[in-house]
Design a protein around this nucleic acid. Sequence first.
DNA 1: CTACTGAGATTACATCGGTAATCCGTGCTC
DNA 2: GAGCACGGATTACCGATGTAATCTCAGTAG
Lengths: 128, 128
Amino acid sequence: MPSTIPVISEAESLVMHVLWRKAPQTSEEIVGALQTSSDWHEKTIRTLLNRLLGKGAVRAEKEGRRYLYSPILSREQWQSHESRNLLDRVFGGKVAPLLVHFSRNEKLTAKDIAELRKLIDAIDRKES
Amino acid sequence: MPSTIPVISEAESLVMHVLWRKAPQTSEEIVGALQTSSDWHEKTIRTLLNRLLGKGAVRAEKEGRRYLYSPILSREQWQSHESRNLLDRVFGGKVAPLLVHFSRNEKLTAKDIAELRKLIDAIDRKES
DNA sequence: CTACTGAGATTACATCGGTAATCCGTGCTC
DNA sequence: GAGCACGGATTACCGATGTAATCTCAGTAG
């Protein structure tokens, strides 16, 4: 857990996704994964990986003459951070308008709704 | 309603907020409002206003020798846009994880919860 | 008429992010 | 041993963004 959450750019986040799915990985694997899902040049991917290292979002351990890369920043931390950010920037920090927005504008599946209802009940019970 | 939603930077969004609260306004009013809530230089604020004009996010009508500025992009459009963005970038486009995240990690007031419950019921009824 | 002022237009400049290309060092290939 | 290949490090370049300063021109004050 990094004490300060580093800022991850959008391109960088795609690299993180690869590492969140599986870690550690060599740069070669990472490059491979991203080349099938994007049209980035190998050099580009290495640059992103390096920037992530610099930011402390990933860690590299020497394995022989190569490095093995692993995420330091977890996906959950990142999601939390980004969500907080949206909440503050766009909804003035208030949760309700955001939830209302999503409920209104995004089609929720029955499953989503059930899930949500369960959550609310849980919170509700805990709170009283 | 602009057909293409312009990208609003964070600094620019603060200018938009001033206009969303009240419009139209002269640049002087806008500058005044932002100088009390930020430490931006007047020049900075005018630059931002100009960039917003260039992006088509605000409109300026001549009033005598001055302009009166109004938003073209609505707050709701912008919120929608930014939310969609977060959803896609961070939660893989799926609403449920996002809602779960917010429900878990953000303290919801009783009012929030009530509001949410109402919404869910409404959606639920509509859907069946 | 003349100089000054204030709003808007233009220009500036550093940093970040997207997207690479180049450089460097060390094993592998003959 | 001489050169090549490959991973990693360094450097590059452009547009966007944050943050202004300068330029211009039309009124206003004398």
